[in-house]
Design a protein around this nucleic acid. Structure first.
Length: 329
DNA sequence: TGTACATGAGCAC
DNA sequence: TGCTCCTGTACAT
């Protein structure tokens, strides 16, 4: 269940584990057989993230990933949607162990990497990856690692032109260096649609999901229900800058943490969350525990860490919106 | 074994 | 706005 930072981490992981390698592409589930046949035996040249969209560029050429080959690439376009996940496993070689960490590195909340020896891997030579678990739509098998995709909302093979058209529909991505914050500011202020709803619109800003939406609006002390056109441009620039920082931290750490150290374990920490939520730094020494990671997300009924007012949850465009009525007015 | 829920998005009306 | 699709997990029965 990714937001943009997860997809950027995935792109980086694909480049590290499979970059420049010829991949064996299959669809254990069978629902991607035609696409898998198109990609099978091609070399991974590029791994890119735009918002929540992952694009893996493959070709028959050995071009070292240089841009001039772009027109020759076929792109695997994946959107994880609400349930999608990538699961990685390595053969336990030093290189892979280094790349994926030991004993495991989670790339997103539900993406896991196992460095456990694969089935039958007891010496030099070809290794036998673990059997696919669950409904694996597509499996990418490289020299030392395997990646299994389950539950994507989108998994398709597209041309470079089709990839470009998909990207053109997206707003600026705060994690990308080439993003234009003024495009975001102008787009929000053009509409009377609430700023909270617009933050979830991927054509306004790409990569923001329900958690970053709730948390960034809290940090900006901005009422999510404020019409976009009524939000001062300077406030939106500050919001953008904060999202850039938060989402870059998310890419670096592998988890969403929006609370400042001085606000953790403040009022409200005495009430456990209604449901445990997996954090991809579970077990990592020094990681901020989930119950201290957010100001408002999934903290309905608990006291605001800043003002003590109970956090509320509301429906906005069919999604749950968390906010503090005391701080966000 | 059944049900509810989840960090998303496209489509019909 | 409501429905649908995609899947795994936790919890209740």
């Amino acid at each position: 269940m990714p937001e943009g930072h997860t997809v950027h981490r995935l792109a980086r992981t694909f480049a590290e584990l499979f970059g420049g390698q010829i991949l064996e592409v299959t669809s254990p589930q069978g629902r991607f057989d035609a696409g898998a046949r198109l990609l099978d035996g091609l070399r991974l040249q590029s791994a890119q993230a735009w918002g929540k969209h992952l694009f893996l560029g493959l070709s028959r050429e050995d071009g070292g990933g240089s841009d001039p080959l772009d027109d020759h690439l076929l792109w695997l376009h994946v959107h994880l949607g609400l349930y999608g996940s990538w699961t990685f496993a390595g053969d336990g070689t030093d290189d892979v162990a280094h790349a994926i960490g030991a004993p495991r590195r989670r790339v997103g909340e539900r993406e896991s990497v196992s460095a456990l020896p694969a089935v039958g891997a007891d010496g030099p030579g070809p290794w036998n990856p673990p059997e696919p678990r669950g409904q694996v739509r597509v499996r990418l098998l490289g020299e030392h690692a395997v990646a299994d995709l389950t539950g994507p909302t989108r998994c398709e093979v597209v041309t470079a032109a089709e990839r470009d058209r998909a990207i053109a529909r997206l707003g600026p991505d705060p994690i990308r260096a080439d993003a234009d914050p003024e495009a975001f500011v102008a787009r929000v202020r053009r509409s009377r649609t609430s700023v909270g709803a617009q933050l979830m619109d991927q054509s306004v800003i790409a990569g923001v999901g329900n958690i970053y939406r709730a948390e960034a609006l809290f940090r900006a002390e901005l009422d999510p229900w404020t019409p976009g056109r009524d939000v001062p441009a300077e406030t939106l620039r500050t919001l953008w800058t904060d999202l850039v920082d938060l989402m870059h931290d998310g890419v670096r750490v592998g988890a969403i943490v929006t609370t400042r150290p001085e606000d953790r374990a403040a009022p409200g920490a005495d009430v456990p969350p209604a449901r445990p939520v997996r954090q991809n730094t579970d077990g990592t020494p020094g990681a901020v525990p989930r119950e201290e990671s957010f100001y408002v997300y999934q903290r309905a009924g608990q006291s605001c860490r800043r003002c003590g007012t109970p956090v509320v949850v509301e429906d906005m465009a069919a999604r749950k919106l968390y906010r503090c009525p005391g701080c966000q007015r």
